[in-house]
Amino acid sequence: MTLGVTIAAFLGGLVSFTADGFSLAEKISGVSPAVSLSSARPSYTDMPLPTCATCTSNVTFPEYVGRGAAKTFRDPRAFRGAGPDVPAGQRVDVVCRFHQPDAPPSVQPGWWYLIASSPWNRQYYSPANSYLNGDSPDGPYLTNVDSAVPVC
């Protein structure tokens, strides 16, 4: 039996999980609860695609990645479903912006762009603060999100 890696504190005790998402206690006892912790975790398929006017039309807004590559995710709320990075300096067309106020500090203030360009094809989000948002490529980088991009 493979011992899981301790990944979370739960009610003051440590809970270990195996690769298939079951707790170590479930593996040892052979009993799994009606709802396992693995089934309670959101998956990237839980992120519905927006239906705003620009989301379903051919209207897009150009954005340029800043100095580092921009990460992409199918579900920006949980950083799940990682997609291809957008290379530094590349232009992409975005459809809308999605706000996640509980985002970690690295993506604050929590705005994400839905990318229309291939290979992302309106299926991946990328942190808006990874883009120039109208700022000069030479800096200073003062704009975290382009307010001209509509909200999803």
Rank of each mutant, 00 (worst) to 15 (best):
T54P: 03
T45C: 06
R74Y: 00
G139V: 00
W111T: 06
A88C: 12
C55E: 10
P42L: 03
G66R: 14
N58I: 14
D85E: 14
Q123E: 02
P62E: 05
V15K: 14
K27I: 04
T56P: 03
V65P: 02
T54D: 01
G83M: 05
F79H: 05
V107S: 09
Y125C: 02
L132D: 02
S23F: 11
T54R: 04
G139D: 00
S130D: 05
T60G: 09
A103I: 07
G13R: 15
P101A: 10
L114R: 04
L142G: 04
P101C: 08
D93T: 01
L37S: 12
G81S: 06
S57R: 01
P104N: 10
V31R: 12
V95H: 05
Q123S: 09
D20A: 05
S130M: 08
T45P: 00
V95D: 05
A70L: 03
G30S: 09
R67C: 14
S36A: 03
D46C: 11
G134A: 06
P127Q: 02
V95C: 09
R97D: 08
S38I: 14
R122T: 09
T54G: 02
T51K: 14
S118G: 07
V15F: 08
S147P: 08
Y131F: 13
P87H: 01
P150F: 02
S36L: 05
A128Q: 07
S29N: 10
F73P: 01
P87C: 05
S57P: 04
N121A: 08
A25W: 12
M1S: 12
P119W: 01
Y124M: 09
Y125H: 03
N58A: 15
D85W: 11
R80N: 08
C55I: 06
S38A: 15
V86W: 00
A25D: 13
E63C: 00
